[in-house]
């Protein structure tokens, strides 16, 4: 399993989600993306989208002024 980091800090809604989706197209099933977002809506929006389309959420942690959200590609 490999992890790709996407730095979407400074991007406003729905930029981080769209960057995540573009990133998911480039990785294999089982691989992980860690996305950094300073958009507070992403903390709820990304898990909602992940549940809707059927990927797997990993850990979400609050860092200094942004959130780190981990997603595992499942399909």
């Amino acid at each position: 399993m490999s992890t790709t980091t996407i730095d979407a800090r400074g991007s406003y809604c729905p930029g981080p989600l769209l960057e995540l989706i573009a990133g998911l197209k480039l990785i294999s099933i089982g691989d992980e993306i860690e996305i950094w977002s300073s958009d507070q809506g992403s903390v709820k929006d990304i898990p909602e989208w992940i549940a809707k389309v059927g990927h797997q959420m990993g850990e979400t942690t609050e860092q200094d002024g942004y959130w780190s959200i981990r997603i595992i590609k499942s399909k």
């Binding site: 991007s11 406003y12 729905p14 769209l18």
Partner: peptide, 17 residues
């Protein structure tokens, strides 16, 4: 001023993804 995503670019991304 704050650099919100360009609306037309959002639409292009919606079409692409």
């Amino acid at each position: 001023k704050k650099g919100a995503p360009d609306a037309l670019e959002l639409l292009r991304q919606g079409k692409m993804l």
